[in-house]
Amino acid sequence: MREDFITVAGCRTLVQRGGKGPPLLWLHGAGGGGRWTPALARLAERYDVIAPELPGFGRSDTPDWFDTIHDVGFFVLDLLKALDLRGVHLVGASLGGWVAAEAAVRSTERLASLTLIGPAGLHMKGVPRPDTFLWTEEEATRALFHDQLLVDAMLAVVPDEAEIDRRLKNRFATARLAWSPRWHDPHLHKWLHRIDVPTLIVWGAEDRYLPQVYAQHWAGLIPGAEAVVVPDCGHSPQAEKAADFCGHLESFLERMGR
């Protein structure tokens, strides 16, 4: 894996890239990116995995135009163009899934498939959701995973100064995009039918951020989309059940002819 900074739409952006194969663009969630996780390492065995830190997050700039989720959706399309990628498998988790969907309703020209992992972006009336912005860091971490032993281990690590700064920056960026309307774009659902590439929705059965019922909701709005629910798993199947998740994604992409 190598790291480079490239400038897209005036935004200096960190891009991690590793592996060989068809291009797979990975969009991180609200917790931020810039980490070559076990899931990315495994996917890099079969794909050319490209994982930017989104504008406003981590080591990437916060550009003047960083106002709404739509700005980031357009940024992703500009990034695909800047890297001259075609036939891309676009994968986004949580907030990154929302960004991926915003990009895909605007253009699927450079996409071969779309995979959304517990994406934000839609709102189902009457389905209760937690106010994640009122959670303490510990509450937010506990809610992220189903397996609380994993959480205990994570919480036992005391963050250093750089990590505190990184989290603060990511939190600011997340609020910028998701505070209001809370975690959704009220107009997105009207245009999901425009997505004309094979689409996979992945959801943790025990997701406490966004209840699993959203999986079918998404699948119903994107033509031909498949939904898979990962048992005993919270909001981040790619982290909590990395092997299962990668298995699902790889077999979906195999069936779609890579």
Binding site: F133, D165, L168
Partner: peptide, 18 residues
């Protein structure tokens, strides 16, 4: 008031917030 309530992200600059 807990901190999350008093200091929502972006309410002050990053340095002040810290």
């Amino acid at each position: 008031m807990p901190q999350e309530m008093l200091l929502p992200p972006g309410y002050t600059s990053m340095a002040s917030m810290k």
